[in-house]
Write a protein that binds this DNA or RNA. Structure first.
Lengths: 350, 350
DNA sequence: ATTGTCTGAGACAACGTTGTCCAGAAGGGG
DNA sequence: CCCCTTCTGGACAACGTTGTCTCAGACAAT
């Protein structure tokens, strides 16, 4: 055991292949072969090496391994999302982890918080660690800077947002269509004054969602009152304030579409504090835990983060396994979950 | 740029220190010094090296760096929790990430799902990657097997659950006390038939929570009806079923303490479906997003995952910075958040 | 018995970096 | 002017592993 080496390094009791080889009475290279399950080793030797390895609690050093291997693989992938503490990102992370662990790959996570400079910092850090691949929901709107790394052989799979200035696989939700369908749903209940509340317009999905809303309104020949459209809302309190003003105004909306989780919560608070929850219809984007427990239960457009993640992970690993087929864009359907709050009819309506 | 090396390896366009040195017209070692911000380099050379590095988009190879460094540091820490997709774990992960990124350290995450064998698999994987430290909420109840790694110099900080058979720092919630206080709260509203619903008894915190409940009941001289205590509930549907039976029974509880998130949700569903939400008091452990939007809003014992994570991360990094002071156990207070559901008086009560 | 083929194990170099050591330049004092 | 010290940069080895090559030995065919 290499308690102390020539250089005087106090590495602690990490056994190396050399130690295992010495104990098993074989050459270092034979240990390497056994560790990598190469089939050309005599089974007696395999057994001896295995025994020595367990006795010494040998754990291969992945840094050394990654350094020396021809493919440079580190058995590590990066999953970089908006915010690992929000349920959507967390579910994606977790589902990717599931696929990764089954392949002996560990997952390095990071949160961008919609900050493009953080995206740069984190992707660079991951590059330094030579992760084998990326699953990324970018904050920036230009991903050309990743081309270099991509050419170096690192695959990228974009989730939730498409790559810009980069040819890469992506797995997206049908946000636009999802919102269109939800808006049609509200229109069907007689609503004409529908308020749309959206997240940062810099975010791709956020843009898609407003567009989906406008699509449905145009299709139904309902003009959108610009006073009812509020974008760049990021927090529940901000949304609560805005919705409060809307509801207190002379010509309030009869229905609200909340384009994001926190915005939905703020809107719900504003509605409830005015006891309007059975009068004003509301539909949200992204499912909320406990949405079914509210009174009325909340109708939402639910995305499918598990499926997005599974698709993305399989695509990534396929690429790592050598798939060189053309870039793919997979769209995962979102689903309108009808629970009550979106089925409140407009005042004059039947 | 090493497009192709002697061995014929297609490494892609990763520039190495050698390439940078060649372009800058200095020796390899000088590049290393510049990259590591060693102060003994002439500033002209520094500038030249920096320029060459950016021109080549040089990113140091952390695998090589970790391999060669005396301390073997990989600038990586592992955060291994129950389930990264549940809000408690996700918040901890995210808060640790925040501290880590400020130190240029990346975070590898993993979920145990309360499966001790998965704990073994994941910790071993992290060992192979030679992570610099661990923040861990273990699934197993014996952590002696980590001693070897600890002796190798890797610090461990346990969160949410204390280390067993291992001397290591820990950051815990005052679960037991929190539950005791919540139970007293229910007792104060006249409740005597209080039902306790708990998670897997193998989980440390789960055990603590029942104990906290029994403490308060004993203190108040109220005997606990064993039919009202249900443990090993893991899912919302299971909890819903159990609470359904309780409520439909001849002698139902007047108050319920739900020892965990999903259990709370199941209990709430059972109560609501019987329209008893204004009759049966309920208090949960762990805050729920939107708990304030329910009718009545849900009283909970809220933990403080951000603080737990921040404490744990600072402890870990202090250890990495050489702190050799005795092992510490930090307790982060939980807080009873009064919202309404826990303040429903018992039937016969004032 | 000799040669040729094949299998499996070991010697050796190399991956990209950092620690150690040394040499040459620069600077100061006698 | 020379010697000694200080500072800076470079040569070299080493980290733990894997790829390549070689060689010993087993075995079959002549």
């Amino acid at each position: 055991m290499a308690e102390e080496t020539v250089t005087g390094r106090a590495v602690g009791p990490w056994a190396t292949m050399k130690d295992v080889a010495a104990l098993a009475g074989v050459s270092l290279k034979t240990v390497s072969r056994v560790v990598n399950n190469e089939p050309t080793v005599n089974e007696d030797l395999v057994a001896r090496v295995r025994l020595a390895a367990t006795q010494l609690h040998y754990q291969p050093n992945m840094s050394a391994s990654a350094l020396r291997r021809l493919d440079g693989r580190s058995s590590t992938i990066a999953v970089l999302l908006e915010d690992l503490s929000n349920p959507f990102s967390a579910t994606i992370y977790r589902s990717v982890e599931e696929v990764a662990i089954s392949r002996g790959v560990v997952v390095v996570g990071g949160s961008f918080d919609e900050d493009p400079s953080r995206e740069l910092v984190l992707t660079a850090a991951m590059s330094r660690h030579r992760v084998d691949g990326f699953i990324i929901a970018p904050a920036s709107r230009d991903h050309g800077y990743l081309a270099r790394e991509q050419r170096a052989g690192t695959p990228f799979v974009f989730v939730d947002r498409p790559p810009v200035n980069l040819e890469a696989d992506s797995v997206l939700s049908d946000s636009r269509d999802g919102v269109t369908r939800a808006t049609r749903h509200l229109l069907r209940f007689g609503h004409r004054r529908i308020s749309f509340l959206g997240d940062l317009t810099t975010i791709y999905t956020s843009e898609e969602r407003v567009n989906g809303f406008r699509d449905a309104m145009r299709e139904a020949n309902v003009t959108v009152d610009p006073r009812l459209v509020h974008l760049d809302l990021r927090t529940a309190p901000a949304a609560e304030r805005v919705v409060g003003h809307l509801l207190d105004s002379a010509d309030p909306p009869s229905a609200i579409f909340a384009g994001q989780n926190l915005v939905l919560m703020g809107a719900l608070r504003a509605i409830r504090s005015r006891h309007l929850q059975h009068r004003v219809a509301i539909v949200g984007f992204d499912d909320l835990i406990m949405a079914d427990l509210l009174e009325p239960a909340v109708t939402v457009v639910a995305q499918n983060p598990e499926r997005i993640a599974r698709e993305a992970a399989t695509m990534l690993f396929r690429r790592l396994d050598g798939d060189t087929s053309p870039v793919r864009r997979v769209v995962v359907e979102s689903q309108l979950v009808i629970r009550g709050s979106g089925e409140i009819p407009a005042p004059g309506d039947r």
